[in-house]
Structures are given as C-alpha cells and as structure tokens.
Amino acid sequence: MFGYPGLSSPSLQLNEAGKLKHLLTLEGLKPHHIQDILDRADGFINTDTRQIHKQPLLKGKTIVNLFFEASTRTRTTFEIAEKSLGADVINLNVATSATKKGESLLDTIYNLEAMQADMFVVRHAKSGAAHFFAHHVAPHVHVLNAGDGRHAHPTQALLDAYTIRHFKGADFSQLRVAIVGDILHSRVARSQIQVLNLLETEEIRLVGPKTLLPHDASAMGAHCFTDIEAGLKDVDVVITLRMQNERMSSARLPSEQEYFETYGITEERLKLAMPDAIVMHPGPINRGVEIASTVADGPQSVILDQVTFGIAVRMSVMAGIMQT
C-alpha cells in the first residue's frame, strides 16, 4: 500500500461521512468501500444467466459521458449501465485539440453543469485529469474516472475484482495474481494493483520486460518478474494487458512477434499456472500479440464474463455515488 502523506487526498473523493462522492482512484479507499461496491453489484446481475437487472435508481438524473480519448467499448458499457439505472445519458466525444487551453477545458465542464448534468464519466489522455475535474466541478456534481492517462481506471479494476471473486471466492488472501504486459503505461494495472492490495491478495506479480515495468513496484505493493515462466508459476489468476503499437515506435519493444515470443500467454506457458487458473484481459485483445487465440477462447478464459460483470459493477458504482 502507498500510505504516503497527502497521496491522492481521500477528502477529494469522499464526503464527510466517508462515503464516495466521486470515484477517481482506488488509492486511499478502505476495504469496505470495495466490498460495498462488489456486494451491491450482485443485486444488478444474475451471475448464472448473466442477466442484468434494470433498476431505475437514477431516474431523472443526467449523466454525461465525457470522452477526451477515443473509446468504444468502455463508453458503451458505461452507457448500458447508465440506461439500466434509468438515467438520461449524453455522450460527448471531445477532440482534445479543441480544448488545448485550460479555460476552455473548464468551460466545457461549466457549460455541461449549466445544462443540469449530475455526473461526468470522464476519460482523458493525461494522468491526473479526473482529479482536475473533481477539483473544479460544482459541489453537487459527481465525477467518475473512466481512465486518466497512465494513472487509474478504477471501474475496470473493480470489475476485475468482481470477476476474480466470482470464480475464486471472496477470500483473496491465498491468491497469487500475475499481471502480464505493459504495466508502465497501464492505468488498468495501477488500479488493479490497488484493488488487489485492498482485498489482501497474497501476491501480486508484475511480469514484463524492464522497458514496460514501473520503476518502483514495491512502492505500489507488487513484485516485478522479467522471467515469464517464473512469473506465471503457480498463479491463480493471469491478467494480460493490451499491447499498444506505440511501444514499438517509442523503442520499448522491437516487434509484436518478439513480444509474443517472449511474453505472450500461450497454452504451454499457461500450464505453469495452477490448473484451475483463470485468464483475464481488459480488452480489446490483440490475438497473437499478448495472448494466443487458443487461450483467449479456451476454457480458462473469463474475458467475456468480465465484460458482462462490468455492467453490473459500473451500475453499482454509479448508484452508490449518486446516492451520497
């Protein structure tokens, strides 16, 4: 755990009663916050039939999906979750170039507030952007971080925790989890590490080449492995991350082929993990780059379950925040 003085001051996202009024990061939250979200999510889904239970808890509320960075999948699951809660939904894909200046970035927010928005679901390419918005919105407006730069993607990590809990049970204290790939640039990994630590996971391994590992993993509460075989040995959960083309052009990796050869999750490598290990991926997957198709489509893959559970978890987060 971080425990640094002042690190992401919890006061920004918690109200006086200690309840979430924004969700910007999982850092600074207590285990009960996580448990509440996961437990409430149970009420929004039948995990046997994968059926989502629509409940009009946010009827009359307006939620703006404010995406400064392109996204189809995340935005869509948010939209489904919002509509399943009966909220009015507005989607705005804001070209970053139009909001280069600080004032106009804020003007966007102020204008939307004036149009009676109750919550912003924000995605932005820069770390800290969600904090920036939370600092500047009106007191009654909620901010939900849908991914900011390399910093955090809390709802993804929560749905991952929900998925692990579904398949492995509520006790994480015996679990070994390997996160494989580009940890350095991954907001998903940062939030996953936080949620896994909050749930007292026995071991969190970060697996990848040094060019894609964070400088100080121990400060994040995780251990680095550059050896894929050692990293996968006896783990209960394998989380693969998406490999961006950009890592080739920025000279962090020579090629997708070489990455697959050295760190790709293949059936053979998966045998090193526990026999009942599950394989996860935040999507969208690059087949043959970070994961072999046979694994992605194989019996241990829970990748599509993550997507469905994600709707319930996002419903739970939004219902929780909007009711404070």
Binding site: Y4, L7, R190
Partner: peptide, 13 residues
Amino acid sequence: HRGAISSALGLPD
C-alpha cells in the same frame, strides 16, 4: 521524478 510517486501515479518520468 522517476521514483515512487511517478510509478504510483503513472506520470511520465
């Protein structure tokens, strides 16, 4: 600075 905080917050270092 490339250190604990840039690692944790995902800031380019």
